[in-house]
Design a protein around this nucleic acid. Structure first.
Lengths: 148, 148
DNA sequence: TCGGACATGACAACAATGATGTCATATCCA
DNA sequence: TGGATATGACATCATTGTTGTCATGTCCGA
């Protein structure tokens, strides 16, 4: 068995607790605004990529459109996102952050970034950049494997 | 805002879909044996670290002991793990893989490793090792943040 | 040695979320 | 134009993480 595959295996062993623990860390600030981690992911997508339809968000987050629709409906109920007429499609509306929603996400992101600055202090900027490249490649290939 | 923190943020953005997609990939082989991803994690811990108590497994997986107890009970019902008398504690039994359970996990792991060999082919062995180091440090620090 | 703090297994209930299915209608393409 | 597909709305279910309770066993300090 190749050493490479075994190292990738070790990486994947770390990501599950990492996702759980990072969700736990941001959970408190999110609850104060009535936002769940799923809703936060939708808000992030809209804030960074601009308005898009529900199926578009679902595709980019690798989730079913039905689940995203729930998050969008919840976010709309809270006033963080709103629908806009889609010039290219009468039935499928565009979802966009409201000014308040954009502000909320900026606040959330700022708080998270300030914590992340203190993480993995022993690693250099170059190592972290390398890790990002590896993670992105791995994520891309595993994603492709799903669609096999 | 530091570039470092932003890069770590990008890493964390990748891990959530990665966890979901990797779970989807291994899901099929697991279902054939009646094993869920949670049960697989417990089986992995016991196969690699040896017999331990339910609270021990929970601590190492960053999960509540109640959830682990469910997985252990399910695994025991399927004959993949069994309890042994704990010489150091009358009430808290040791959980261990059965020979069949150890064999099952070895089979699962072998299948997963063979897939992983083809992942992130553009990355060198050194880059993957660096990524593992960064992930481990990040995971450790985020875990510590939870307990704040 | 005793007593209180803590650990453990068993059981229960709940919330978030991912998966799946259906249906009416709109859209798109051959 | 007509059939295939996309979309929103609604519904259901399984997995799993979280939390709480209770009886009993264990451990440590006074």
């Amino acid at each position: 068995m190749s050493e490479r595959g075994a190292t990738v295996y070790e990486i994947l062993r770390h990501v599950r607790p990492l996702v759980l623990n990072s969700a736990r860390v941001v959970e408190a600030s999110l609850r104060a605004d009535g936002v769940s981690v799923g809703m936060r992911a939708v808000l992030e997508m809209l804030a960074e990529q601009g308005p898009m339809t529900v199926p578009d968000i679902a595709d980019r987050l690798d989730l079913a459109r039905q689940g995203i629709q729930r998050h969008v409906n919840d976010l709309a109920g809270l006033g963080w996102v709103e629908s806009r007429i889609n010039p290219a499609h009468r039935r499928s509306v565009l979802i966009a952050t409201t000014p308040a929603g954009a502000e909320l996400f900026a606040r959330i992101r700022e708080g998270e970034l300030s914590r992340l600055d203190r993480m993995a202090a022993e690693c250099t900027s170059e190592e972290i950049t390398t890790a990002l490249r590896v993670l992105a490649a791995l994520s891309r290939d595993v994603r492709a494997e799903v669609r096999t």
